[in-house]
Amino acid sequence: MSTLTGIWGKFNKNRGNAFGYGLLIPSIIVFAIFTFWPFLYTVYLSFFDWNMISPEKEFVGLRNYMEVLSDSKTYRIIGNTFLYIVLLLAINCVVPYIFAFVIDVVLKRFNGFYKSAMFLPAFISLVVGSILFTWILNPVSGPLAIIFGWLGLEIPNWTKTQGWVILVLSLITSWKVFGYNFILLYASINGISREVIESARLDNVPLWRLFLQIILPMSSATGIYVFIITIVQSLQYVFTPVKVITQGGPDYASSNLIYHAYHEAFVVYRTGHSAAISIITMALFLILLFLEFKLVERGIYYEN
C-alpha cells in the first residue's frame, strides 16, 4: 500500500512538473525562434560574405572580423560608443541617484510633483523627442538660439560638429531614459529603513556621508541594475535620435556600434560585417558587465 501511494505521489509530481514545463512552452517557443536561433545565425553569418539578396553566401572564415578590426572607422565608432556610455551613465545613473536621494531623504515638499514630472517623458516616443529637440535646439531659428542671441551667445551647429553631436544626442536620449532610472532608484532608496536614516541624521552625519556610506551601499543592488541597463539599453535607445537626426554623420562622428551594425546590414547590405560588429558589440558588453561585477561584487547589499 505504501509503495502504491509512493508511486501515485511520484506520478502526481511528474504530472505537476509536466504542467510546469507546459506553462513555459509559449515563452520558450518565442525566445527559441526569435532570440536564440537568430543569435546563432548571426554568429554563422559573421563568417560569410553576403549581401542579403544573392542566393550564394561565400565562406570567408574570420575575414569579416579582420576587415572590421583593421578599419580605422571601427575604432572611431568604438570611441564614440564609449563616449556615449560615459555621458549616458553620468546623466542617467549618477544624476538621478543623487536626485532620488535628495528628493526622498532631504526635501519635504513637492516630492510627489517631482516624481511625476520627471517620470513623464518615459511614456513618450523618442522620435517625438528627437524631432522636438531638433527644433528647439536649431542653431539658427530655434527658441533656444533666440534666447541665447539676447545674451550674445551662439548655439554650435551641433548636428554638423564632431563632439557636440554626441553630447546633444546623449541629452536627447536622456530626456527619455532619465525618468525611468530615477523612479527605479527612488523606489530603492525609499525602501531603506527610515530608522537608519533618522538615526544618522540625529547624529548629525553630513548629507554627503549619509549618501555615500548608507544610502549608496544599501541601494546598490538596484544601483547596479540601473548601471547595467543604462549601458545596454540606453545605448540602443540612442539609435533612434541617430537614425532620425544624423544618420551617423557627419562622417561617422555620431555613429555608435549599434547604429553601425544597422547601417552595414540595411544601408550598404554587408551582412557579414554587420554580424561581426554585432558580435563584437556583445563581447564588449559582456566584458564591461564582467568588470563591473568584479569591481563591485563585494560592495553589493541585497535588500532582501
Binding site: G20, L23, L24, Y41, L257, A261, A265
Partner: peptide, 30 residues
C-alpha cells in the same frame, strides 16, 4: 514548480535582456 534546469533556464531567459537588438536583427528580418 520545481524541475530540472529551472535556475539555468531562468538565467538564460533573463540574460536575453542584455543581448543588443543588432545581434538578432538580420535573422529576424530574414
Amino acid at each position: 514548480f520545481d524541475f530540472k534546469g529551472k535556475e539555468i533556464l531562468y538565467f538564460v531567459l533573463i540574460g536575453t535582456i542584455f543581448i543588443p537588438f543588432t545581434v538578432t536583427m538580420i535573422p529576424n528580418y530574414l
